[in-house]
Amino acid sequence: MLEGKFEESSLMKKVVDAIKDSVKLCNFNCTEHGVTVQAVDDSRVLLISLLIGEASFEEYRCDRNITLGIDLESFNKIIKNGNSSDFLTLIAEDSPDNVLIIFEDKKKDRVSEYSLKLMDLDSDFLQIDDMEFDATITMPSSEFAKITRDLKTLSESLQIIVTKENVKFSSDGDFGTGNVVLKGFVDMDKPDESIKIDMARPINLTFGAKYIADIVKGTSLSESVTIKLADKSPALFEYKLPSGFLRFYLAPKFDE
């Protein structure tokens, strides 16, 4: 049996918001250590990997591994009904046909209970081994979201170029070009505002801007985002959770 209670429903709301435009159907795999999701978008270009660790829950119990096949659009309709500050509890039997979603207001005696039908989903799993990356950038997630949105208005591709001194985000479109250059710096007072650039080898990669626009929907989960890049390889975009992470792996574009 699964019983997981969040101190606030806001975390689950943000997670669903962050992934629902990339994937429609996915298995939530529940183990004693927490909840994981791996899912690939329909175009097979973007992969999400989610870990909501046991410590993200106020109370968590999962005796046997349980798979919840969830339609995220339906789940989102229910999850939006809770207030962000409500307790959120997910309950499922060992071989469940549905999952119970319970919201409890902390001040009033109001309990809202919903049941979501589960689906039997086939899922291919992609084996992602630990990769060696040539460059790692950590920056404020809101800044990355703004750069993505701004440059996406010019072109359907977004180029990321990393040199020793800086990282350049660049787009080249029909009516014009644009780029944003950031240098590494340390903000002592607000560490999350810092920009950190670690580069072993210079990087020049191009990605579909629409996929990065989906990735930055994770912005509300974390103050900062870490981008890991390797030549001619998928990039890793990571938003850290209080215990766990939401990672996006995005295949690049390049000439043969």
Binding site: R44, V45, Q127, G208, P234, A251, D255
Partner: peptide
Amino acid sequence: AINQKKLIQFYVKT
């Protein structure tokens, strides 16, 4: 032309 790669070109399906 520049081509969009698929993840399966990089990772093994299990």
